[in-house]
Amino acid sequence: MGHNSRMSARTAPYLPEVQSELRTPRLLLRRPDPADAHALRGAIKQSLPELRRWMVWAQELGALEDTLENLRLAAERFDSRENLRYHIWSPDGRDFVGSTGFHGLDWRVPKGEIGYWIATPHTGQGYAQEITEHLTEYGLQHLGFRRIEIRCDAANERSARIPPLLGYTLDARLKNDDVAADDPTLLRDTLIFSRVR
């Protein structure tokens, strides 16, 4: 039987206080809430053609009940420090801009992986870089991370441009690491970038 080296947030020796809201110069990052369901679904629906290529979960817009359950679980995992997902909003909290956060958490190190997607109507404005820069500093300075990773499909040039601009090092290119989100017959390479402290 294999041994899972990941320690759950509940059994980790170190669980920091995590802010449920963060502000960047132009955006509000907020812990997920079931009240976000309609805004989240609207953003996904507008963005499906772009998201389908990169996100397995974005192949179709699921039922409202599934979105509500996803958000209930995301809030629960945020509170237990298992997964720190943030929804990205306009500064007034009215317009849903995207989603980001720290995933793949291992509080023994501690370390996490930053993920992000920006709704299609808001792309091209530098928001992904802005939130990634903010989360990188927040993770290293306030959460005490010793390592932060960013992983992306090697074909996703827009995502792959961001980490080097923020001082991340390309650790590896994993060849034939995954299947394409929109075509399980195609194999894709994964890029792994990191910042360490």
Results as ranks from 00 to 15, higher is better:
residue 77 R to Q: 15
residue 141 Q to G: 00
residue 177 D to L: 05
residue 77 R to N: 14
residue 110 P to D: 03
residue 88 I to Q: 04
residue 72 R to T: 11
residue 20 S to T: 03
residue 116 Y to E: 03
residue 1 M to R: 09
residue 95 D to V: 10
residue 6 R to M: 12
residue 141 Q to W: 00
residue 152 C to G: 05
residue 87 H to V: 08
residue 23 R to M: 10
residue 58 A to P: 14
residue 137 E to C: 12
residue 151 R to P: 10
residue 131 I to A: 02
residue 8 S to F: 01
residue 16 P to G: 03
residue 132 T to P: 06
residue 31 R to A: 13
residue 134 H to Y: 13
residue 179 V to H: 11
residue 71 L to W: 00
residue 52 R to F: 10
residue 125 Q to T: 08
residue 57 W to G: 10
residue 19 Q to S: 11
residue 54 W to H: 12
residue 48 L to G: 03
residue 19 Q to I: 02
residue 197 R to I: 01
residue 58 A to M: 12
residue 60 E to K: 10
residue 139 G to D: 04
residue 59 Q to E: 09
residue 126 G to V: 15
residue 132 T to K: 00
residue 54 W to K: 07
residue 56 V to M: 10
residue 8 S to M: 04
residue 124 G to N: 07
residue 14 Y to A: 00
residue 138 Y to C: 13
residue 151 R to V: 13
residue 8 S to K: 07
residue 135 L to Q: 00
residue 183 D to W: 06
residue 50 E to R: 11
residue 93 G to S: 11
residue 50 E to F: 13
residue 143 L to R: 06
residue 9 A to V: 04
residue 185 T to F: 01
residue 45 K to G: 00
residue 55 M to Q: 11
residue 100 T to H: 04
residue 112 G to A: 10
residue 112 G to P: 06
residue 8 S to R: 10
residue 151 R to E: 15
residue 194 S to W: 04
residue 108 R to K: 04
residue 113 E to S: 13
residue 55 M to Y: 11
residue 86 Y to V: 14
residue 15 L to W: 01
residue 143 L to C: 14
residue 169 T to F: 01
residue 154 A to Y: 00
residue 22 L to H: 04
residue 105 L to F: 02
residue 31 R to F: 03
residue 180 A to G: 01
residue 183 D to E: 08
residue 2 G to A: 08
residue 105 L to E: 04
residue 96 F to V: 07
residue 129 Q to V: 07
residue 182 D to T: 06
residue 17 E to S: 15
residue 159 S to L: 08
residue 135 L to D: 01
residue 157 E to R: 11
residue 21 E to H: 03
residue 43 A to Q: 08
residue 88 I to A: 00
residue 192 I to K: 03
residue 45 K to N: 05
residue 166 L to M: 02
residue 90 S to M: 11
residue 130 E to S: 11
residue 20 S to Q: 01
residue 51 L to D: 06
residue 45 K to Q: 12
residue 4 N to M: 12
residue 183 D to L: 09
residue 97 V to A: 02
residue 9 A to L: 04
residue 122 H to F: 13
residue 195 R to Y: 02
residue 54 W to N: 06
residue 115 G to M: 03
residue 191 L to P: 05
residue 83 N to R: 15
residue 140 L to K: 06
residue 26 R to Q: 14
residue 97 V to N: 02
residue 142 H to T: 06
residue 97 V to Y: 01
residue 167 G to M: 03
residue 82 E to Q: 15
residue 147 R to E: 02
residue 37 A to S: 09
residue 150 I to Y: 06
residue 180 A to Y: 03
residue 33 D to W: 11
residue 168 Y to C: 01
residue 47 S to V: 07
residue 28 L to V: 12
residue 197 R to F: 00
residue 95 D to M: 06
residue 94 R to A: 15
residue 117 W to L: 02
residue 18 V to K: 00
residue 67 T to L: 02
residue 115 G to F: 03
residue 61 L to N: 07
residue 149 E to N: 05
residue 177 D to V: 07
residue 121 P to Q: 05
residue 169 T to Q: 08
residue 37 A to P: 03
